[in-house]
């Protein structure tokens, strides 16, 4: 499933979507940035509650297909603008990380 298609679901809201055609091949959940960089795989959807500027750098370097901000977390405008410039798709959801992963697991097969 592409990131753009995922955003069409009512549970998700696009924060910035510069590359909506990217495919999601799996999920990684984590808030410790180095841990995420060491373990997340290319084209994973990365679910986190971290929202500082370094999230954009980590998402770019680990080449995840999107960042999903769980629990209703949002990005400040300057962070969203940086993410968009770096070509990082960012999505927000009110779901917790576990519920988000369950939903993704059921639809990206």
């Amino acid at each position: 499933m592409t990131v753009g298609k995922l955003c069409e679901l009512s549970e998700f809201e696009a924060v910035c979507l510069p590359e909506p055609e990217r495919e999601i091949n799996g999920v990684y959940i984590g808030d410790l940035l180095s841990w995420v960089m060491g373990r997340a795989r290319q084209d994973n959807a990365w679910i986190t509650i971290m929202s500082n500027i370094n999230v954009a750098a980590v998402a770019s370097l680990s080449d995840v297909s999107c960042v999903i901000l769980a629990e209703g977390v949002t990005l400040d405008d300057d962070v969203a603008s940086t993410a968009a410039q770096k070509g990082i798709n960012v999505i927000s959801t009110s779901f917790a990380a576990y519920e988000t992963a369950l939903l993704l697991g059921s639809i990206i097969q």
Binding site: L32, L33, S34, W35, M37, G38, M50, N52, V58
Partner: peptide, 15 residues
């Protein structure tokens, strides 16, 4: 608090 300092820096560099 910024999400770093997990003690993964050098291990990741080696990895």
């Amino acid at each position: 608090s910024l999400g770093f300092g997990a003690g993964m820096g050098l291990p990741n560099m080696k990895r």
